[in-house]
């Protein structure tokens, strides 16, 4: 596998169709996968440079060799405050598996929101077809997506 992406967190890798928001589940924003988390640290799914960190820390973009990646923690979490603790800044170089953020998934669940960590390739620059490896994965260690020639 020349191009691959790790799960960003410990948990269960699922297809995007499991996400209760059409913007993600329809693939409109890009191809990718969702992870139902069992851990609390969100890691860089691939090496690259951090592009953006959302104001409250729920979304991160990474320019990687596969293309633009977006790590989006939960659905409708843009309004939550005090839930995400970012550990990176825009412009920073990151290695695959490096922690991006700590998130309080209990609080997300308590708000009645979906807590899945979503990984999207919003702009694919590497060649190949996107394949998802579903099932249990360790964050920053196990491949969840790869490109097949």
């Amino acid at each position: 596998m020349k191009y691959s992406v790790f799960s960003p967190i410990d948990g269960e890798v699922l297809s995007l169709s499991s996400v209760p928001d059409e913007a993600f589940s329809s693939g409109m924003l890009g191809e990718g996968f969702a992870v139902k988390p069992s851990g609390e640290t969100v890691c860089a799914p691939a090496g690259g440079v951090i592009g953006t960190v959302s104001e409250n820390g729920h979304a991160y973009s990474i320019a990687s060799e596969i293309g633009d990646l977006l790590v989006h923690i939960g659905v409708d979490t843009v309004h939550l405050e005090g839930v995400f603790e970012p550990m990176v800044k825009p412009g920073q170089k990151v290695a695959a598996g490096q922690p991006l953020c700590r998130a309080d998934f209990e609080k997300i669940r308590a708000e009645g929101l979906c807590e899945s960590v979503i990984l999207l390739i919003t702009e694919k620059t590497a060649p190949g077809e996107v394949k998802i490896q579903k099932g249990t994965a360790r964050g920053g260690k196990d491949v969840a997506l790869y490109l097949q020639d």
Binding site: G51, T52, E55, D68, L70, T122, E123
Partner: peptide
């Protein structure tokens, strides 16, 4: 035409 480019505007 690039999602993360738009998000990086930080428009509120």
């Amino acid at each position: 035409k690039r999602l993360i480019s738009l998000m990086s505007l930080g428009a509120r």
